[in-house]
Each structure stands twice: as C-alpha cells, then as structure tokens.
C-alpha cells in the first residue's frame, strides 16, 4: 500500500488519483470548513506560493469534525462563512478524517505517522489539550487526527516523512519542505 494508491474527489466532484502527484512533495492537510476560524489557510497559501514552482503541492481536505474551530480559539466566536477558501491550492471533498468513517487516506496517514504530542513551545498546546480533554476526550485517544490543520509531509517518492500537529504554524514547516525539494 502506498500513498499513490488512493483515490479522492475534489470539491468539484472530480475523481483524482494521488498517483497523479508522483514526483511532487506533498503537504496533505485537514482544513476547517468555510465557516471555521481559519488563519492557517493564509500561512498554507504563503507556503504554496513560495514553493509551488519547486515542486510542492498542498492538498486540503475540509472536515467539520472539530467544532468549526481553529486550535485555541474555542471561546472566540466567529459568526460568518466564506464564499471561497481564499487559497489557490487544491481543495477536496469534505469528509471525516478520524473515527469509523474516516477517509481511507487519513487512516493510512495516521497509521504511518502517529500522534507524538502537541508542540510544547506553542502556548496554544495547553489550551487545545484542555479543550479536548474537557469536551472531546475520545479525540485524545490513539493516533487519529486531533484537530483542524494537521499536516502530513510526503516526499517525492511517496514516503510519509513527517506529521505536524495543528500547533505547528505553516511558516515553521518551511525548512522541512525545503529539505525535500
């Protein structure tokens, strides 16, 4: 089984084989939906703009399993939605990324790279852990995706080389991406 064996659907309903991305460095991310609080979209777009020409593709999978919130913002209520995601990288069909109905791609990714804890140097980590333990204790169990904007980095040969938690800002991933390009 390899990453290139998976088939997914774009947000326009078109089938896409991940094999089409062979030879590219991939960043696969579960994003919030159009009504979430979503500053990381901007950071991801910056990475895409910077590295697209060198062979990076970002694949965004919207999911509404995480209370429509960005980490650490549970008490900040945002009351609007966006017409677009405001990004130029590929967005796929909305679906589950954890639990029984998780998309096979995300089952595979989380098997390849398990949960090793949130980033200790990010003050949001404590808040996110607290929110999860209080409201969604089942999410804290196991290796499943913990929250919006978990990022999986794939090298040009299709190996899942790294998993970054939501508490890792997109800009902080840049050096890891550069190593693979």
């Amino acid at each position: 089984m390899s990453i290139y064996d998976f088939k997914v659907k774009t947000n326009k309903g078109e089938e896409k084989n991940l094999a089409d991305y062979k030879g590219k460095v991939l960043l696969i991310v579960n994003t919030a939906s159009k009504c979430g609080f979503t500053p990381q979209f901007e950071g991801l777009q910056k990475l895409y703009t910077k590295y697209q020409d060198k062979g990076l593709e970002i694949l965004g999978f919207p999911c509404n399993q995480f209370a429509e919130q960005d980490p650490g913002t549970a008490e900040e209520i945002q009351t609007f939605c966006r017409r677009n995601y405001g990004v130029s990288f590929q967005i796929f069909e909305k679906g589950d990324v954890r639990g029984e109905n998780a998309q096979p791609l995300f089952k595979y990714l989380t098997e390849q790279k398990g949960f090793k804890g949130f980033d200790k140097d990010n003050p949001l980590s404590a808040k996110l852990t607290e929110t999860l333990q209080a409201n969604f204790p089942e999410i804290m169990q196991g290796d499943g995706v913990k929250w919006n904007f978990t990022k999986f980095l794939i090298d040009r040969e299709g190996n899942v080389v790294e998993r970054f938690e939501p508490t890792k800002e997109p800009s902080a991933i840049a050096p890891e991406i550069e190593k693979l390009l």
């Binding site: 009504c35 939605c81 966006r82 017409r83």
Partner: peptide, 10 residues
C-alpha cells in the same frame, strides 16, 4: 448568503 451557512440562517 451562501449555501449551507448557519450564520446566514440565523
């Protein structure tokens, strides 16, 4: 509005 926008409905 947009389609499926809970805040629009509110």
């Amino acid at each position: 509005t947009i389609t499926s926008c809970p805040w629009c409905d509110k």
